[in-house]
Amino acid sequence: MNAPQTPPKLKVATCSLAGCFGCHMSFLDIDERLLTLLELVEFDRSPITDIKHCGPCDIGIIEGGVCNAENVHVLREFRANCRILIALGACAINGGLPAQRNHLDLRNILEAIYATDTGLASGTQVPNDPELPLTLNQVHPIHEVVKIDYFIPGCPPSGDAIWKFLTDLVAGQTPHLGHGLIHYD
C-alpha cells in the first residue's frame, strides 16, 4: 500500500487594485493561522512576496475595484492565470469608497483638482505622462470586467471570514459564511 501522499500546495496570488489594502491587512489578521495556511498554499504574486507578475495559480484574490487602465491589465493577468478568482471586500464587489465618485463627471473632477483655484493642485495641468495609467470614467466592481468565481464581502471582511472562506474552498467545499461572518460593513 502506498503511503498517503502530501497533496501539492495550492498556488495563491493576491493584489490590491482601487482599494486601501485594508482587506490585505485583514488577511494578516488570521494571525497564527497564516502558518497553517502556508502548509496548504504557497504565494505567487502578492504584496507578501513582492513578485511582480503572477504565473499559473489555483486561486487569485483581488482587493479593490477597477478605477484605471492599469487595474484592468492586472485584473486580466489574474483572470488569465488563476483557475479561481475571488473578489475580496466591498470595493472589489461593488466599487466601494472609490465608486462614490461615480455620480460625478470625471472631467469636472480633474478640472476641479488641477485647474481651478480651490483645487488641490490649482494652476497645474492634468498629468499626461504616458507612464501614468489613465483613469476610467467610472469605478467598476471587478465582476463587471472579468468573470469572478467567489465573493467575500466586508469592509474589510474579518480575518475569521477570510479564514473560513479559504479553508472551505481549499477543503473542496462550497464556502459558506454564517451569521456574524458575512457582513457588508
Binding site: L106, R107, L110, L134, T135, N137
Partner: peptide
C-alpha cells in the same frame, strides 16, 4: 471608459 481621461490629458498613445 477612458474617453474623459484622454480628453483631459490630451493623450492618445497606446497606453491611453
Amino acid at each position: 471608459a477612458l474617453s474623459h481621461s484622454r480628453q483631459m490629458t490630451g493623450r492618445d498613445d497606446a497606453g491611453a
